[in-house]
């Protein structure tokens, strides 16, 4: 037990990097995903096509492959960035289509009459979307979005295989160095992940119950 306690500072270092990955990649993919979702419903056909291709390609590529590209191929192309920044890029690229799809399903859930009413009183595309459709779509979108971020939390562990010392890489190293308490180390790591994911899942459930639109 004392031995496990003495490892806590190392765990904390890894946990902080995992949180950093989650927050930065989460915010970036939220921004990128919103842009993609907006393109997906836009009046310009070219933007719709681009967004559709981006969504299908990005979410059907294995995350490990995306990481291989950012960690090995990008440096070959002359991109000199720290590995954690490359991990941000990979996670954002992979997560953005899931955010876009969650937003789009929320937008599709708004009854047609709402948009028709907005159009009929003379609102344009931008006004219809930003004033009428999106505010109603967001409450339906938040629970699925939280699920996307839960998945992102678990996906950050892949960065541990690509030179980013986050919780999973830390755990693997600690388990190698302390052969006598492997089980305790792995359980601690699992608990640290659950500390992030379980409250998020609980929040998603609560919001879903509170914000369910009764129609």
């Amino acid at each position: 037990m004392e031995q496990l306690w003495s490892l806590m500072p190392t765990f904390w270092e890894g946990f902080r990097v995992t949180l950093l990955l989650l927050v930065v990649a989460g915010v970036l993919s939220l921004i990128l995903g919103t842009v993609i979702a907006a393109m997906r419903i836009s009046p310009v056909g070219a933007l719709r096509g681009f967004a559709a291709v981006w969504t299908e390609v990005a979410r059907n590529t294995p995350l490990t492959l995306v990481f291989i590209f950012t960690a090995f191929v990008l440096p070959m192309l002359g991109v000199r960035l720290p590995y954690i920044v490359l991990a941000f890029v990979a996670l954002t690229y992979y997560t953005s289509p899931f955010v876009a799809e969650a937003l789009r399903s929320g937008i599709n859930g708004v009854p047609v009459g709402q948009a028709e009413a907005a159009r009929s009183i003379g609102l344009g595309f931008g006004q219809t979307v930003s004033l009428v459709v999106l505010p109603q779509a967001f409450r339906m979108t938040i629970p699925p979005l939280i699920n996307v971020f839960i998945a992102l939390t678990k996906n950050t562990s892949v960065a541990g295989g690509f030179f980013v010392v986050e919780l999973f890489a830390t755990t693997r190293q600690l388990a190698n160095d302390n052969g006598n308490i492997v089980m305790e180390i792995l359980i601690t790591a699992a608990v640290l992940y659950l500390v992030i994911t379980v409250p998020l899942g609980f929040l998603a459930g609560q919001l879903e119950r509170r914000w369910v639109v009764k129609r």
């Binding site: 562990s157 295989g161 790591a189 992940y193 659950l194 379980v198 899942g201």
Partner: peptide, 9 residues
């Protein structure tokens, strides 16, 4: 709630 990689390990 935990990564499948951790479970494999």
């Amino acid at each position: 709630g935990m990564p499948v990689l951790l479970m494999m390990l």
